[in-house]
């Protein structure tokens, strides 16, 4: 019987996954969005294969070289290939923002679950605390965190988590409250199941759609946030190939070597647009009102 169960669950999951894929493919903008994100991931992973250069090795001979067969997008002031740095920059942006988004969404959902389930004073305290964090301008809390803990990628991840967890909690909590009023939750409570058992077995599977959309949406905000921090000099340290840092380093050279700033900007913009379109597509295929999500 266990074999039957496993296979039936498997086919059910596969069927619903196929339904989501089909509905994403039916929307042109969602297809473009997922295409852009997947392309960025592939380029980042295969960066070492795609280019013969090292992103951090200086080459005085080709400093500020114009685009040519050797350097397709030219080289920067230290002679590093711009295309190479842009491709490797994707690795940094994607890993850090992926880690930050996973932690943000997981933590936010968990807090949301506890607040909604416990209700009463626990809910009150959690939501008030998170609301007051949301009231502080993001850039202010970021600067405080960076000033206290210094720079570095884990500090950035921490900063993103602090800034965005409250928003995730708000949205997911509202979705969970809706599920908690259902009778199957009462049945589970009457069986005497614990909070985490009910949340994991009964609640989260029913808000997975909201969480996935939240993930895609927060990812785009976090990518932007991390690049902004690097641009301001609080994120990645030179010579790390990072898009925000590249723009900051090369903005004085915009007149001489415009591609050195344009390339990372285009890369960043396509990733963010891709993530946003993907989030929209997911939301539409799950039937979630994205405007409501954005406005909280």
């Amino acid at each position: 019987m266990t074999a039957v169960t496993v296979s039936s669950r498997f086919t059910q999951n596969r069927a619903s996954a196929r339904r989501v894929v089909r509905s994403i493919l039916s929307s042109k903008s969602a297809t473009v969005g997922f295409g852009l994100v997947i392309l960025q991931i592939i380029l980042a992973i295969f960066a070492p294969v795609l280019t013969p250069y090292n992103p951090t090795t200086n080459d005085a001979m080709s400093a500020l070289a114009d685009p040519s067969g050797a350097h397709l997008l030219g080289a920067d002031a230290l002679g590093r290939d711009i295309l190479t740095r842009t491709l490797y920059g994707g690795q940094y942006a994607l890993t850090v923002s992926f880690a930050a988004t996973v932690i943000t969404v997981a933590l936010g959902s968990l807090i949301a679950g506890i607040a909604a389930f416990r209700g009463g004073i626990v809910d009150e305290v959690i939501t008030r605390v998170l609301d007051s964090i949301l009231a502080i301008p993001a850039i202010l809390s970021l600067l405080v965190i960076v000033t206290v803990f210094g720079s570095g990628q884990w500090v950035i991840v921490f900063a993103a988590v602090v800034v965005y967890t409250g928003g995730v909690t708000r949205v997911v909590r509202a979705a969970i409250l809706d599920v908690l009023s259902k009778d199957f939750i009462t049945a589970a409570r009457a069986r005497g199941e614990g909070m985490f058992s009910i949340l994991l077995r009964e609640v989260f599977p029913n808000v997975l759609d909201v969480i996935l959309v939240e993930f895609a949406m927060r990812a785009s905000w976090i990518v932007l946030l991390i690049s902004s921090l690097s641009f301001l000099g609080f994120g990645a340290n030179p010579p790390t190939p990072d898009w925000g840092l590249m723009v900051a380093e090369n903005r004085n050279l915009m007149a001489i070597a415009p591609l050195s700033t344009v390339a990372p900007i285009v890369a960043l913009a396509t990733l963010i647009v891709g993530l946003n379109l993907a989030a929209d597509g997911l939301a539409k295929s799950f039937g979630i009102d994205r405007m409501k999500e954005v406005l909280g």
Binding site: S181, D183, F184, T186, A187, A190, R191, G192, R201
Partner: peptide, 22 residues
Amino acid sequence: RQAVQLIFQNADTSLNPRKSVE
């Protein structure tokens, strides 16, 4: 807890829509 069980009015919400009958 085992000795007392509940059945609900609204069959729509008494079952988790993401879980099989099994």
